[in-house]
Each structure stands twice: as C-alpha cells, then as structure tokens.
C-alpha cells in the first residue's frame, strides 16, 4: 500500500510533467529562465528597489517607512534639485550634439585613405581608454584656479593678464565640465560611426559619381541614410552615458561652485550616500528615469523609422 500510492501518483504527474515539457511554449519559457533570472536579479530588482526606496524615508543603515510621494513633493520645491535638472539637460544636450558633430566629422576623415590610418585610429581612441577619474584629475589641473596651464599660457602670450576662473563661476564651470565630457566622449562616437561607414557599399558611391552627384549629395543621400541605424544606437548610448555621468563632475567640482555643476547623479550621491538620506537620493535617481526613457524612445521609434532610413522625408 505504502509503495503503491505514490507509484500511481507518479504515473499521473509524470505524464502531465512530460506533456508540459513537450509543449513548445513551456519549453521556451524554460530556456529563457537563466536569462530572465539574470535580468531580474541584476537589473529589475535594483531598479525596483531604488524606486521603492524613493517612496520611503530610508537612511543609510535603516530601512525607513513608506511615506508616499513626500520625497518628490519636497524635491518639487527644491531649487537645488531643479538646478541639477537644468544642469543635467544642458550638459547632456550640449555635450551630445557636439560629440556627435565632432565624432561624425572624425569618422568621415578617418574613413578616407590617409597615411598611418591604423595608428591615427588608435590615437583617436585614447581619451576613451584613459580611466575617467584620471582624465578628470588631469582636467582639474588644467582648469585649476591658480595653476591652470591654459591661464599660464595665455598670460605668457600676453593675451590675458590674470588667471581665468574656470571652475569658480557657474558658466565657466559648466563650460569646463562639458568640454571635458566632450573630450572623453568623442572617440566612442567617432569609432562606432567609422565602423558604420565601412558597411556602406562602395558601389553606391560609384553609381552616384557616374550620375554626377556632388560630395554633399553623396553624404546626404547615401552615407547619412545608411548610417541612421548606427547613429540611433550610438547617440542613444552617448545620451545615456552623458545623462548619468558622475565621475567627471565628482572629481572636478563636486557639484560646485554653489551647485552650479551638480548633475542629478552627483546630487543623488551627495544626498543619499554622503548625507545619509537614501530615500531622497533614490527619489532623485528615480526622477532620472522618465528623461532616460524618453531619450531611448526618441532614438528607437524616431531615428529608426524605415522612411528615414531610406532617405525620405517624414510624412
């Protein structure tokens, strides 16, 4: 008796189990499980936790209680938070546009047959290889209020007569950190676009040349449309990296002078980790999500439209 009962059950469940596992949909789910687990544990869970924290008054080392949208209401009236939103948007838009322009220009140049091509391509990558913190410290010296090499050179040349206060006044400081970000980000854009350029079939250019197209026509009607998917990817990444930048700002200005260069990421760190208000810091991070999502949406649904890719105008 004792043996028989589980035996009967086993027959029933085994057949159900087998049938279940022969179902293609179920099998598919099984195969997706490792990837799903990976995504849930390492992406969805931290993201969800961050959003949950933003609804609590958690402090470092203490769980905190649910307080609804209190953190967000407070941030809504916080001038420093809005300043950081403004700074982040300014930083992202200006740096991304310039990075794209310079990157595309460099990619077009490097796509030509020039001497020492491989060597020059390697050099272009350098700023991207140097650890960000190191380059940030180098820029911190370059923009130092007393020991700036730029100020020194301009004074020696007789162009100015006192040091430029690069990081001490709001607009100078913003320009300086944006410059550093551009310097660092251009290689990524340039090299990726260069890779894209090499996938454009040479025959299209030959045909266009026979038809008497000018250089600009070729760029406008062949290169640019065929490059659009790559541009969409590159610029999405570039915008995401720039929007969430932390190291450059933290090493160069720590958000100063008087919060003029605080980005949302650095303000979040200052409030959450240094100030101990995890909930409020998490709320600042959570507030970044809509901006990031809209950047992604714009790239994927906008730039990837088939008509754009075929060089036609939007209708």
């Amino acid at each position: 008796m004792v043996d028989a009962a589980p035996g009967n059950d086993a027959v029933v469940s085994a057949s159900f189990w087998t049938r279940l596992n022969e179902n293609r949909t179920v099998l598919g789910l099984w195969f997706m499980l490792p990837a799903a687990a990976f995504l849930i544990f390492f992406l969805a869970y931290p993201l969800g936790l961050g959003m949950w924290l933003s609804l609590t008054d958690a402090k470092i080392g203490r769980a905190g209680e649910f307080i609804g949208f209190e953190n967000f209401t407070w941030l809504w009236g916080d001038s420093v938070f809005w300043l950081s939103v403004f700074n982040t948007l300014l930083y992202t838009v200006v740096a991304s546009v310039i990075k794209f322009a310079i990157g595309l220009y460099l990619a077009l140049l490097l796509n030509n047959n020039i001497a020492f091509k491989a060597f020059i391509r390697a050099i272009v990558l350098l700023p991207f290889i140097v650890p960000t913190v190191l380059s940030a410290i180098a820029f911190w010296w370059i923009f130092d209020s007393q020991f700036s090499i730029l100020s020194w050179a301009l004074i020696e040349l007789g162009i100015i007569d006192q040091n430029i206060d690069f990081l001490g006044t709001p607009n100078n400081a913003r320009a300086s950190v944006i410059f550093a970000n551009i310097w660092r980000g251009v290689p990524f854009v340039a090299i990726t676009l260069l890779a894209g350029l090499q996938t454009v079939p040479q025959s299209l250019y030959e045909a266009a040349t026979i038809d008497g197209a000018s250089k600009w026509d070729m760029f406008r009607h062949i290169t640019y449309p065929l490059l659009t998917p790559i541009i969409a990817v590159v610029m999405t990444f570039s915008v995401l990296f720039t929007f969430t930048d932390f190291q450059l700002i933290y090493a160069m200005t720590r958000g100063g002078p008087v919060n003029a260069t605080h980005l949302m990421a650095t303000l979040s760190y200052q409030r959450a980790i240094l100030g101990g208000n995890l909930g409020e810091g998490a709320a600042i991070s959570t507030a970044m999500i809509p901006f990031l999502l809209s950047a992604i949406m714009f790239s994927w649904f906008g730039l990837q439209r088939r008509k754009w890719q075929q060089g036609e105008s939007d209708d």
Partner: peptide, 21 residues
Amino acid sequence: WIPGTASWNDGSNNKAFLAGE
C-alpha cells in the same frame, strides 16, 4: 580674496599656500 575660491576643494588651499599664491 584671491579669485577662484568658490571652486576650491580640500587640496586647493594647500597647493596655493605652498606655491606662495
């Protein structure tokens, strides 16, 4: 004061003082 103190961090004053600035 000397210009630029709004951007000074903990190390800036050490450098400036040691350089006689």
